[in-house]
């Protein structure tokens, strides 16, 4: 198949960007979107041009680095990561618009690559448990209800890709933050720091310049891991409890 890409090109963090049109003939429909980009970059390199910068790592949908906006849908038309999106999801002759995630808290590094360091700092602000190291504790020491274990596990599948932010009309990272708060908040190991966690993470979220959540739900429509909306209502509940206990 033959497609036309319109790709965001920006040579550096402070440079002006623009959309570049690139004709891409002879695309196999079995290629992943990333493999198609590899072909594009090979051809650009052979022609002596600058290849399009795009992040990737695992290429199996678990690392979360490969996110871009495709026709203003985070990760494109399939609810999967860009490495798991195949060209058969498009048709011959399509014009495909590819842009980086847009958020004040995700500055563009180059072309389609953004700096998602803000997510790491939110995790550092509370997305962990403090546990003494040593030999592994006895597995039955802290029983967990099956339902809670399942919910916690669902929330734990977040891969920090940032699609929720890119899709959110408010540029909020609440789904990401809530996934971690829910994951740890449902487990016994997460209880001691439950309230300091939600306060720390939400404060850091706001300090990073993410917008406020207004419960629109665009995030859950694009999340490749299907993180559910109830993580956000759980976060709200924890936050209210923590605030009423006198937290800031």
């Amino acid at each position: 198949m033959n497609i036309t890409l319109r790709v965001w090109r920006q040579s550096g963090p402070d440079a002006e960007g623009h959309m570049q049109t690139i004709e891409v003939p002879d695309v196999s429909e079995h290629m992943s979107f990333l493999e198609m980009m590899d072909v594009v970059n090979e051809r650009l390199t052979l022609a002596g041009e600058d290849p399009v910068a795009i992040d990737s790592d695992c290429r199996e949908g678990i690392c979360g680095t490969c996110g871009v906006m495709i026709n203003r849908e985070a990760h494109g038309p399939v609810r999967a990561t860009v490495c798991q999106l195949h060209m058969r999801s498009f048709s011959d002759g399509d014009v495909i618009d590819v842009e980086p995630w847009r958020s004040d808290a995700f500055p563009v590094v180059k072309d389609l690559v953004v700096d998602r360091g803000a997510f790491d700092r939110i995790i550092q602000a509370g997305g962990y448990i403090s546990a003494p190291t040593g030999s592994a504790p006895e597995a039955h020491a802290a029983p967990v209800k099956k339902q809670d274990a399942d919910h916690a596990f669902d929330a734990a599948t977040c891969i920090q890709c940032g699609a929720c932010v890119a899709a959110c009309p408010n540029g909020s990272a609440m789904l990401f933050t809530a996934a971690k708060v829910t994951h740890l908040g449902l487990l016994p190991q997460g209880q001691p720091e439950r309230h300091s966690r939600v306060l720390g993470m939400v404060n850091q979220h706001d300090a990073e310049g993410f917008g406020g959540c207004s419960n629109i739900g665009e995030c859950t429509a694009v999340c490749p891991k299907g993180i559910p909306f109830d993580t956000i209502t759980r976060l709200n509940r924890d936050l209210l409890t923590a605030l009423m206990k006198g937290g800031e």
């Binding site: 319109r6 965001w8 959309m19 906006m69 026709n71 203003r72 849908e73 618009d97 842009e99 847009r102 958020s103 004040d104 808290a105 899709a167 959110c168 009309p169 408010n170 540029g171 909020s172 706001d206 310049g209 993410f210 917008g211 406020g212 207004s214 629109i216 739900g217 665009e218 429509a221 694009v222």
Partner: peptide, 30 residues
């Protein structure tokens, strides 16, 4: 306050493409 945070975080003309400007699933009310 919320609107100003949101305009700063997401910008007004956020993406170049004209497609899917109304989002993927959001209600008209929102």
């Amino acid at each position: 306050k919320l609107s100003r945070r949101s305009w700063r975080a997401a910008g007004v003309n956020r993406y170049e493409t004209r497609r899917n400007r109304r989002g993927i699933q959001r209600s008209y009310a929102s």
